[in-house]
């Protein structure tokens, strides 16, 4: 647990006139529809706990209304919780005064928004340098650092454009560059790519993964798109109606869905690109079998099966040793339960 960068503990958020008054009822198990019917309050988050590991991408997934955007706004306290605790590097965010909180927002976290949230009256370079300007960095340094990130997200040549002159995908590159420019360790991405069309979204995901290879930020990524979640997330948490339904890696979610709701969700995804060999490996492989990396996904391993004697391959296990996977296992895993 000590490697958790951000810890969310038993977080509750109730929207309405007297959240504190109805909180005990919710804790006793009053359901969301009943709360709305009987007390006219909306349950936003219900007993959500999540440890977000350092330098990984934590995806929080859920459909609209599941509370995922509410959750991410609690981390930098854009929304005040009704009850619970949030720790960043072990520091209690909720106990902070305004000045300390601003300092956290300036140095530790930065955010990318679904609707970009760019400043329309400022040029691209001024938008990218905004966080640095807020920190009080000198103009010359702002210019150099902003230019660096403009180049990194592929917007070279657009420094003097206004956001309104750019396409959605390019605007979000500005948003990403603005968030990266402050060098904060935590990146909060609230449905950052959801407003973009599929091809551009895929490009942006690639850019993010590429940057993460070298930057190793702690990224909290909100999405409603399972493909996006599976592609980006080292860990995935699924919210429904404000409650945490399942936490785990992409494989856990696909192979061991916590309930029918999630199983339904994962039904149509390409399992071959999610499930890794080490999830299936067991025993010891015959010595003549070709050996693959444990983190290879099934789709990439299929050609090796074709060539392997008896359609069995060896898999390097995380703890050392070589396990075996048979083609029959792979087929079974790809088919799923249905």
């Amino acid at each position: 647990m000590s490697d958790a960068k951000v810890q969310i503990k038993n977080l509750y958020k109730i929207f309405g006139r007297h959240p504190a008054r109805v909180l005990p009822l919710v804790k006793k198990g009053l359901s969301k529809p009943d709360l709305l019917d009987q007390h006219n309050h909306v349950l936003g988050l219900q007993d959500v706990s999540l440890d977000i590991p350092e330098k990984k991408i934590q995806v929080v997934m859920g459909l609209s209304g599941s509370g995922k955007s509410t959750l991410i706004r609690h981390i930098n306290r854009l929304i005040e919780p009704t009850d619970g605790q949030i720790l960043i590097d072990g520091q209690d965010v909720l106990g902070m005064n305004d000045a300390d909180l601003r300092e956290v927002r300036r140095r530790k976290t930065s955010m990318v928004f679904q609707k970009f949230g760019l400043l329309p009256h400022r040029k691209v370079k001024e938008n990218v340098g905004y966080g640095l300007e807020i920190q009080g960095v000198a103009d010359g340094e702002i210019a150099t650092r902003a230019q660096h990130w403009i180049d990194r997200v592929g917007l070279t040549g657009y420094e003097d454009h206004y956001p309104g002159q750019l396409s959605g995908g390019m605007q979000q590159r500005v948003g990403l560059a603005r968030a990266l420019a402050t060098d904060s360790e935590i990146l909060l991405m609230d449905e950052a790519f959801s407003a973009l069309d599929p091809l551009i979204r895929y490009d942006m995901q690639s850019i993010l993964l590429e940057l993460q290879e070298e930057l190793h930020k702690t990224i909290i990524f909100i999405t409603h798109d399972l493909d996006e979640a599976l592609r980006l997330g080292d860990n995935i948490a699924i919210l429904r109606d404000g409650a945490m339904v399942q936490k785990g890696t992409a494989q856990d979610i696909v192979l061991k869905p916590a309930d029918d709701y999630i199983a339904d969700f994962t039904k149509d995804i390409n399992r071959g690109r999610v499930i890794r060999l080490d999830a299936l490996a067991a025993g010891t492989a015959p010595s003549d079998a070709p050996v693959l990396e444990g983190k290879a996904v099934l789709e990439d391993a299929l050609p090796a099966f074709v060539q392997a004697p008896a359609q069995v391959i060896g898999v390097k296990m995380p703890g050392g040793g070589v396990g075996q996977v048979t083609l029959a296992q792979v087929v079974e895993a790809l088919r799923g339960d249905h």
């Binding site: 930098n76 854009l78 909180l101 601003r102 300092e103 956290v104 927002r105 300036r106 140095r107 976290t109 930065s110 955010m111 928004f113 609707k115 970009f116 949230g117 760019l118 400043l119 329309p120 009256h121 905004y130 966080g131 300007e133 807020i134 920190q135 603005r178 402050t182 909060l188």
Partner: peptide
Amino acid sequence: DVLEAADAFGASPRQKLMGVQVPL
């Protein structure tokens, strides 16, 4: 949305006023 972004980057009330609200 723009104001929320300014908040998220830690803008003080004064920075929000002079840098975002008045210009817009």
